[in-house]
Every structure is written in structure tokens, then in C-alpha cells.
Amino acid sequence: MNKTVRLSDADNVVTAVTPLEIGQEGATQLIPRGHKLAAQAIPKGAPVIKYAQVIGYAAEDIVAGAHVHTHNLDFRNVDTEYEYSTNIRPAAPAATQDTFMGYRRATGRVGTRNYIAVLTSVNCSATAARKIAAHFTDDKLAAYPNVDGVVAFVHGTGCGMAGQGSEGFEALQRVMWGYARNPNIGGVLMAGLGCEMNQIDWLVEAYGLQPGPLFQSMNIQDVGGLRKCVELGIQKIEKMLPVVNEASREECPASDLMVALQCGGSDAWSGITANPAVGHACDLLVAQGGTGVLAETPEIYGAEHLLTARA
């Protein structure tokens, strides 16, 4: 078994697969598992390259075989040219069309789950939402085999923010609308406080949501307090359950799938094992006509230009 892995011929560092003693793989120092070893001498100020990309600059002269880590690496902001669609790698269409059993919604989109969502317009109603969702244990849902669960989606804002037209307000409403219309959601109960800036009625009007058996709303102040709000919410979902349970799975093409991706543990192996494996899975999905979405955008900090070229 190789004790190091080189990710690109352009790299001037390799990664230790196992802890290296001095002398192993040319190591001049002890190299912990997952850490970098200089594959060649790297002069002070020269770029350190891994994944065929600059990951930093040598803070001092680094001899071949030395441990390369935060103690001898400098970070620099560099000018980056953002190019689009210059490194596209189209996936060849799959030879056969795969399918899965999904919930086809009236919008034409397909879900892999059939949840009832308890959404909040403001942080003040988060406790109510959690208590409502927690009431519906597996035992209470046993009579509704096509309902995958009742889940609360809460957030920490909605009050004390600028109103309509502000960036934060519009972002919050887009996220709430996205939850409400997600194909994994069969029914929605939206809970508010009543006096918040982010009013439920505004969301309903702005995004054309239709109140009905599968879209209910309420707020704590109107119903007379937290306990009454929780009790009413439970009653509303109990009436919703038989309707949501009417949905059934049907065979759907893999092209209907949309999968959101997140980085792994952000450790030494994310870019060596986990992320390439997820990337390969995404390639297989795209070959089927499906869609992969890079959801955890903070993780691409410093590598934006690599992804715009692929977009």
C-alpha cells in the first residue's frame, strides 16, 4: 500500500495516508496521517500546490520531505480572473434510464419524501413549531403510512428587520417559500407570533400560496398564547394527515431528482475521498438528466474561480 497520495502531477506536496516516520517516503520529519509532505524543495514565497491549485505560499524555505502545514504556509489574497464556461465537462448521457419511487406533485416536481412541515415566520414562534412537530411521534403516525413525518423548520429572524424591499427580508421570504413549495412537503402549517415584520399574509400574497386543507396558518397572539397555539396546531395537522396520506409513490425517472450537496467533515480527507465520491455520484445523476446543487457555498471560499469555469 502506498503511504502517500499525489492528487495531481502538478502538485509539489503529497498527502500521508498513514503516519510517516523519518525516512519513510523521503520524510525528513514526522508527518501525521492526512498531513502534507513536500515532494520537492519549495523556496520561500513560492506557491504550494495541491489538487493542481495554489493552496498557499511557503513562509520559509521548505526542504523536500518536510512537513507542510500552518507553521510554514502563508495565506495571501490574490487577483483571480473569473471566467465562465471555459472548463465545462459534459456528462455523456446514460445508456439506460434509471427510476425511483417518488411523490409526483401537482407542480410536476417529484419528492423523495412526504412530510408535513411546520414553518415559522419569526423566531418567536420556533418553540410552538417544535412542540407541534414533536407531538407527532411514530406511534401517532402509524395509521398514515404514506406520511414520512411532521418536521419543524425554524429560523432566528423575522422580527426587528427592514420590511419589504430589503435584501434580508426578501431572502427570508424566498427561503420560506422554498420550504413551502418543496416537493418533499405534502402539507404546510405556518406559525407566527402576530406582530413580526415578516407577516404570513405578505408571504402568501407575494408567492401566490393558496390557503386550504394542505396550507394552514395561525399566530400566537390571535389564538391567545403559546399553549393554545400548540393545541390548535396539533388539531390542524390531525385534520391534514388523512389528506397528505392520500399521496402515493409512483415510478419516476432519475431525471426528476435534484440533490443538494454539502462538504464532508472539512478535514484532510474531504477533498481526497468524500468530495470526489460525491462528485462522481453527481456525474452519474447528471448523466441521467438529474440536477446537482452545490448548497454549502461558504465551503468554496477561495475556489470560486474554479467553479465558475465549470458552470
Rank of each mutant, 00 (worst) to 15 (best):
N245P: 04
D139K: 14
L203H: 06
H135K: 08
F215W: 12
E196P: 09
A309N: 15
G192I: 11
M161K: 01
V230P: 09
V259E: 06
R104Q: 12
F75T: 15
G265I: 02
W202F: 13
H155T: 10
D74W: 11
A311C: 12
G208P: 08
Y207R: 12
R130G: 07
A91Q: 15
Y179S: 01
Q235L: 12
A287P: 01
A52Q: 05
H280K: 13
Y144Q: 06
L214W: 04
G212Q: 03
P183W: 05
V110E: 00
L7Y: 07
A143L: 09
T127A: 14
G149N: 05
H280E: 13
V259T: 12
P32R: 04
G194P: 11
K131L: 14
I234Y: 05
A142D: 05
G34H: 05
N12W: 10
G23H: 11
M197H: 00
H280W: 06
V147I: 12
G23R: 12
V151T: 14
K236E: 08
I185G: 08
G265V: 02
L119N: 10
R104K: 15
H280A: 10
L209Q: 04
L306T: 13
C282T: 15
H35I: 02
V147E: 06
T273Q: 09
G279L: 09
A117S: 14
A143Y: 01
I185Q: 09
W177F: 14
A95C: 01
A64T: 10
E250G: 15
C159H: 00
R310Y: 12
A287T: 01
C159Q: 00
R227K: 15
H71I: 08
D79A: 13
N245E: 02
T297K: 10
K236A: 12
A94C: 05
W177D: 08
G233F: 09
A134W: 04
V118D: 03
G289S: 09
V175F: 05
A95E: 15
L141T: 07
L37K: 06
V204H: 02
S217F: 13
E205C: 00
D283P: 00
S166D: 15
V68W: 01
A126Q: 09
R104C: 00
P242F: 08
L73F: 06
